[in-house]
Simulated scan of single mutants.
Amino acid sequence: MTKIRIYDPAMCCDTGVCGPSVDPELTRVATAIFMLEKENINIKRFNLASEPQAFVDEGLIQQLLHEEGVDVLPTILVDGEIKLKGSYPTNEQLAEWAGVSTDLLTKQPKKSKGIELL
């Protein structure tokens, strides 16, 4: 099974989806990760501010940070290989790496009696 790891820069919360002005890109990524988790895809996300040990434990990330600094974040590893650094993956990239249909990550939530259902 594919293993996807996302190493985020320091953010105020685990997803970065908080505060008065939410970055739509962070919302998209958080939603995509949620949808992949629902499909039992092995995907995890680490925030430099709240989980610094994960950055130390992963040798590639530790080396990148030492050589290039925090501007390489976010960095995405897929099966231990750097796939992307300095930006978040598109839904298409996530779907490809996870081996799922892109439709899974672009579905609009269903509404039922005013409640959004995913």
Rank of each mutant, 00 (worst) to 15 (best):
M1Y: 12
M1Q: 11
M1G: 12
K3N: 14
R5L: 14
R5G: 03
I6V: 10
Y7D: 08
Y7I: 00
D8L: 08
A10K: 04
A10S: 15
D14L: 15
D14W: 11
D14Q: 13
T15F: 14
T15G: 12
T15H: 07
T15D: 12
T15K: 09
G16P: 09
V17C: 11
P20F: 06
P20M: 10
P20N: 11
P20T: 14
S21V: 15
V22N: 10
V22R: 12
V22M: 10
V22Y: 10
D23K: 07
D23A: 13
P24S: 13
E25G: 11
L26K: 15
L26N: 13
T27G: 13
T27D: 12
R28K: 12
R28E: 14
R28L: 15
R28I: 11
V29Q: 09
V29F: 14
T31W: 13
T31V: 13
A32N: 12
A32T: 08
I33Y: 06
F34E: 12
F34P: 04
M35C: 12
L36Y: 06
E37I: 06
K38L: 15
N40T: 10
I41Q: 07
N42F: 07
I43Y: 08
I43V: 14
R45W: 01
R45E: 01
R45N: 01
R45A: 00
R45I: 02
F46K: 01
N47K: 06
L48N: 00
S50G: 04
S50A: 12
S50I: 09
E51D: 10
E51A: 08
P52D: 05
P52R: 05
Q53E: 15
A54P: 06
A54H: 09
A54C: 05
E58G: 06
E58H: 13
G59H: 14
Q62R: 11
Q62G: 07
H66F: 14
H66V: 05
E67N: 11
E67D: 15
E67F: 02
E68R: 14
G69Y: 00
G69H: 00
D71G: 00
V72T: 15
V72I: 11
L73V: 04
I76D: 04
I76T: 15
L77N: 05
L77H: 08
V78A: 09
D79M: 03
E81K: 14
I82V: 14
I82Q: 03
I82C: 06
K83M: 13
K83E: 10
K83D: 02
L84D: 06
L84K: 06
K85F: 00
K85G: 00
K85C: 00
G86E: 08
G86H: 02
G86L: 00
S87L: 09
Y88P: 01
Y88T: 02
Y88R: 02
P89D: 07
T90A: 03
T90L: 03
E92K: 15
Q93N: 07
Q93V: 07
L94Y: 03
E96M: 04
W97P: 02
A98E: 06
G99Y: 06
G99E: 08
V100M: 04
S101T: 00
S101D: 12
T102D: 03
T102E: 09
D103V: 03
D103T: 07
D103M: 03
D103W: 04
L105G: 02
L105K: 02
T106I: 05
T106S: 07
K107F: 03
Q108R: 04
K110D: 09
K111V: 11
K111P: 04
S112I: 10
G114L: 06
I115N: 05
I115S: 05
E116R: 10
L117S: 03
L118I: 09
